[in-house]
Amino acid sequence: MRPYTYTAPATLEEAVRALSEAGPGTKVLAGGTTLFDLMKLDIETPPAVVDIRALPELAGIDTAGPRELTFGAGALMADVAADPLLRRDYPALAESLAKAASQQLRNMATVGGNLLQRTRCTYFRGGPPFPCNKRLPGSGCAAIGGLDRGHALLGGGDACVATYPGDWAVALIAFDAVLDVTGPRGTRTLPLAGLHVEPGERPDREHTLAWDEIVTRIRVPVTAAGRGSTYHKVRDRESYAFALASAAVAVTLGEGGAVEECRVAVGGVATRPWRCPSAEEELAGAVLDRRSARRAGAAAFAGARAGTHNAFRIELGIRTVAEALRIAGERALR
């Protein structure tokens, strides 16, 4: 690991100042489960780190509010996953956290930092001699034509097919979450859908935050579809694995099981958290049953592009969406 300077400011204001003063390249440290891991691999090599883990301004969650749910960016995954109101009213959000990582990691990682976790692509993490446009722009991509079983089917390109590995952001994007962001130029609000970017020609650029900005809060508008929701995650093993395919789904059903409101996003299969408007359109007004659920899944993967070893995950993804819709539909009728 490269040497770095460490500061742990006591307030958010001090943290913003410390970050600015330390200059470009400085990284914000929260739970450390991605950053410190990648620093050990020499993939992340910040000259300075500003620790925001314990900032009081980033603590706390409120899942009882009449208009929106709020999650302090510094809240721990384990605490949000266990929140009784969230589990009852927005099971997709709670499940996306409970099915991620292990309890040890959920006790460390924050719900803000979780959004910015980096890809698990072996060639990205492995370092030299593998080329990687994300790690070393212009060097090429070893995953294209290589061992790409876990790589993205949606949102990839000729430069990069690295999968966005997170679960929480997939559930949040289905619920139109927004982020409060603060930095030396003030505070702004950013839709979560505008945070992550597809690799295009610049796979090293993964999100739209400036280097000196800090995510302070995640906000989710209240919706009745929360109760009829699920985060369905298919993995190589029953627990503690990244998704081969996942789906965050929320529905409300009207007379005769007709779909009124519908939200669909997929995870583990795309280069960023992936909302599926075409799947939602497929279901609008339809009766939710096995056939319409299957059609929605197929619509979600209509633009999928397989590589060498990952084509099986297209059918798996379609079935994952359909199964999520079945679970969500049952919950919506309770």
């Binding site: 460490y6 440290l29 450390g32 410190f36 620790d51 292990s102 309890q103 040890q104 006790n107 460390m108």
Partner: peptide
């Protein structure tokens, strides 16, 4: 998980925890 310890009563993996934290 071989490095699991408790910090303030909660289990964590000590290998991913910068000790300064």
């Amino acid at each position: 998980g071989a490095c699991t310890v408790h910090v303030d009563g909660r289990r964590v993996v000590s290998c991913l925890l910068p000790a300064v934290q």
